[in-house]
């Protein structure tokens, strides 16, 4: 993987003529582009253009946003904001957010190098969110569903009491209203600042999923870059179906920890979505621009299509399921 990235960097589409180097012919050239990259990068206006880290293409930010943050040249998946993700997966104006005002408290009065309170304030400001997950109910081409999307840019998508509680309420809402559930994860794991309360969110969310599953309702877990540790070792791994985005980093322990503990050489592509699929750990890898249709297909197949095909337009009452499944409303 890293090989191809280097090679592509050697030949930036903007300037170098292609085919001048034999692929893999030398290693000395690997360092060259880094030097010549530096001045060019400085000339990029902030917030307008983004350079694709995989293929080196210069991408206009608005185009990138319009393409679900996927590089049109090489299909590299950039991070996408929770709100943009929700917009991409739900019908316009169908998403009703749950618990939008729920916020973390510094129950342990944690003071490390920075205090938890300061960290929270900083990320609330930078993300415009109260915490690292947005939950709610909405419709996907008319199908009602419960949806939770994690926001990695809020403290590394870490799971503390708020993430655990919001995810749990979202699951419970799905169980009560008999909805299929989709959780899009991206997280570095449990939030250290809340100590054992964070760990216990793993038990809480998993228990809620036990009852959602027992009610015969489908849960599709979507793993995005990165999904690791406490989130991976709880709800993210418990989907009836588990779908990952291409090249997403997915695992339990961090690669550095594994390397330090075992002194082992990590296999190529270790802990990528592709590696997990090859080892039989996930159902499928689905590019972001195909996720919506794929979810629709699976939700239909697994019986969460509670709206008959004829009624598949954004309905006036998002929480009203089809007649054949109305027992909970």
């Amino acid at each position: 993987m890293s090989d191809s990235r280097f090679k592509k960097n050697l030949v930036p589409p903007a300037e170098a003529p292609s085919g001048t180097k034999l692929p893999g012919s030398d290693t000395s050239a690997l360092r060259k582009p880094k030097l010549s990259d530096a001045p060019r990068r400085r000339s990029i206006p902030e917030g307008l253009w983004t350079k694709c880290p995989q293929c080196g293409a210069m991408l206009y930010d608005k185009d990138l946003a319009g393409n679900l943050e996927i590089c049109p040249t090489c299909q590299h998946h950039f991070p996408i904001k929770a709100r943009a993700r929700i917009a991409s997966l739900t019908d316009p104006d169908s998403f009703e957010e749950l618990d939008a005002g729920m916020a973390s408290v510094d129950i342990l009065q944690f003071t490390g190098v920075a205090t938890y309170v300061d960290r929270l304030a900083k990320y609330q400001k930078s993300t415009g969110l109260k915490d690292a997950v947005v939950t709610g109910v909405g419709r996907l081409d008319g199908r009602p569903l419960a949806l939770a999307v994690m926001e990695f840019s809020f403290l590394g998508g870490s799971m503390g009491s708020v993430v655990g509680e919001k995810i749990t309420r979202c699951i419970e809402t799905a169980t009560k209203k008999r909805l299929g559930l989709v959780i899009v994860s991206s997280s570095g794991g449990a939030r250290m600042y809340e100590g054992m309360f964070s760990l216990m969110q793993m038990a809480k969310t998993s228990a809620a999923l036990a009852y959602h599953g027992r009610a015969g309702l489908p849960f599709i877990s979507v793993l995005t870059n990165p999904t690791t540790a406490g989130v991976m070792a709880s709800y993210a791994s418990l989907g009836d179906l588990i779908i990952a985005e291409p090249a997403a980093m997915i695992g339990f322990a961090g690669p550095r920890v594994i390397k330090d503990t075992t002194q082992a050489t990590l296999p190529p592509g270790f802990q990528t979505a592709e590696f997990l699929q090859e080892h039989g750990l996930i159902d499928a890898i689905v590019p972001r621009n195909h996720l919506r249709e794929r979810l629709a297909f699976h939700l239909d197949l697994l019986g969460a299509a509670t709206v008959p095909p004829t009624a598949r337009a954004p309905g006036p009452e998002p929480s009203q399921p089809a007649p054949n499944r109305t027992e909970a409303g």
Binding site: D99, G101, M102, A103, I107, S161
Partner: peptide, 12 residues
């Protein structure tokens, strides 16, 4: 386990 966690709610 459901009860474990501390947060504030400010729905309005």
């Amino acid at each position: 386990y459901r009860r474990m966690g501390h947060f504030v709610e400010d729905p309005v």
